[in-house]
Design a binder for these strands. Structure first.
Lengths: 339, 339
DNA sequence: ACGGGTACTGCAAACGAGTGCAGCCTGGTG
DNA sequence: CACCAGGCTGCACTCGTTTGCAGTACCCGT
């Protein structure tokens, strides 16, 4: 038997479809006699009626879906964010459509086209680059969206980002307290807001704490990856600059540092300390376990979803952005410098 | 300006909406004059017309979406599978709706209800338990679905599973070749088909190779988790049974073993070898890097999606199931037994 | 008794696309 | 010249739901 429709319910309850519709919708229930409403609801339940969101969407121009655009679901950074998003979307009756862009702008554009064709009511975007024409375009088109994790510059869009500056400060301060004075930074790619932001924060933290602020101490990796991180550290080491600790742009870059440690027989943490960023899963299983900055991923997702729902409800509301506090997780990769 | 509709296109091309519809649909294009068709298509392109899948879905009772039911997206096992799924869904014009069940049957039921309400055309289910009444129910209801990774017993549903038996055999054989004769198994929970399946395969591999087939050598963990794995190994160790190598039910359980090694000061691999199962990311970064059985996750997902699309196209086609081959990845956690 | 609320409920028209059926025109044939 | 077939195109209805408007019935006050 096909799924019961609103008409079936109405008929069974002896009312017109319109009345049934009103009775079933909490917002319009007040318009119908309380008894009638009760009866309709009971019948609907008995028949196992489920409103057809497609038909509803056609009429209301609302699909009850939002697009979630991430570079790569396989990156352990994102699943918790997605969890957070769904956690708040779901009770609100929304579902998320997840797409991967593989960091490919063409693919991204295609995917977003596709999402828009599917009538998503909003977008949660985790693929922001510093200069991101597509995002500008979307904003002009009046697509409601919120950025997570990263954000483009000069674009007035709500965003949820970890408080990178505070995080970097935490890392540098920790190393300073251990006694390090020459601390290096292997930064993320300058095409990402997080890359430049953390680098900037690093310099200022170093200055604030009165440590050696030597430009030679910062090197940028050209991707958020292990191998790029390893390359970065190699360049740093080869340059001859002296340092006893490293703040890595993120955990993957820190992992790259581990590779170089092994390759060059550097003892971590005895000879060299390193702190990561993000607190990916399983970092505590490394040898040595990685000291890192923890980001409330799930909370980021949840907050982003909340912002998006707000924006959907009232698109005129001014963009609001949230900075989430981070925390330092001390494990085994940091120690006082060798004397 | 609102998105152009079929009517807009028709009007701009000077034809009736019905004609435009036929011209745009490759299947019915033959019904309209080739020139007219070309004109309509061109106008559609110029206006940037995208058919509204909601409206289309209403008429055709097809939503172009399939549900993907997984226990927990945060488990690194699943993202690659999801990638694989989307990889084949996407070119076929379908999208996937991902839901998490948290291994909670009530939640699972609720989520699946929700998916069905959203008119998904099929389900890819990764949460199968050995005895799974809900799946039986769904099958009776004629929901087309395919199982990935695990499968319930006594249910005639297409499924894609790794060839667990072959994988376990690979692991045991590897250890045997290194010279181990007393090999233990920390199995996954018996409520999952993979748990019992691998345990069964373990016993038979051990027998085949003529090693000690001692029931005391297998202990079951009551979850696929690190802590459950650790508990399992502790019980095994405390029982006093002697063994020099462990086949873990999966990588997380192996990770739990690592915890116990540290806790009891056991040197891996010198005193104890261990091999995992699944080849999660970052296993190579552990100390020692974990030897494990690699599963073609992405391929599993892709294959599952293909099966599902087939089943959607022709629901009468008999259930077909696929067993995917595994491979052994030798890293640092296995070595010859201490003499 | 009548006018004016109020409280419901039904009617019908949407939303955007797909589709059976009927009608148009054209060209060819007898 | 009449007729028919075939090739295109348009009409109108449908999918399931929402919603403005109109209508009915009832109650109240004057």
């Amino acid at each position: 038997m096909p799924a019961p429709t609103l008409r079936d319910v109405a008929e069974a309850a002896g009312v017109h479809a319109a009345t049934a519709s009103r009775a079933l919708n909490p917002a319009t229930r007040g318009l119908v006699n309380a008894d009638t409403a009760r009866r309709v609801i009971k019948v609907a339940e008995q028949l196992g009626y489920r409103p057809n969101p497609i038909a509803r969407g056609l009429k209301t121009a609302k699909s009850g879906t939002v697009g979630i655009v991430i570079p790569d679901l396989t990156n352990p950074l994102f699943p918790p964010i997605v969890r957070g998003i769904e956690e708040v979307l779901e009770p609100a009756g929304y579902s998320g459509l997840i797409v991967n862009t593989d960091n490919d702008p063409r693919r991204e554009e295609w995917q977003i086209q596709h999402l828009r064709a599917r009538q998503v009511e909003g977008l949660i975007v985790a693929t922001a680059r510093v200069d991101h024409p597509l995002m500008k375009q979307l904003q002009r088109d009046g697509v409601v969206m919120v950025m997570v994790n990263r954000r483009p510059e000069g674009l007035d869009v709500p965003s949820i980002t970890p408080d990178d500056a505070a995080g970097v400060d935490l890392a540098v301060r920790h190393l300073a307290e251990l006694g390090h004075t020459r601390i290096a930074h292997v930064a993320g790619p300058p095409s990402t807001s997080t890359g430049v932001g953390r680098a900037r924060a690093f310099r200022s933290a170093v200055r604030d704490l009165g440590l050696d602020d030597d430009p030679a101490l910062v090197e940028t990796a050209d991707a958020w990856s292990e191998s790029a991180g390893a390359d970065g550290l190699r360049r740093l080491l080869d340059s001859g600059t002296a340092f006893t600790a490293i703040v890595a742009g993120n955990d993957l870059i820190a992992l790259g540092c581990y590779d170089v440690f092994r390759e060059r027989d550097i003892d971590c943490p005895a000879e060299m300390s390193v702190v990561g960023f993000n607190d990916m899963p399983f970092l505590d299983k490394l040898r040595p376990p990685l000291t890192t900055i923890a980001i409330p991923h799930q909370q980021i997702g949840a907050e982003a979803a909340r912002l998006l729902l707000d924006a959907i409800a009232d698109p005129t509301r001014p963009a609001r952005s949230v900075l989430l506090p981070l925390s330092l997780v001390v494990r085994g990769s940091t120690a006082p410098p060798a004397t």
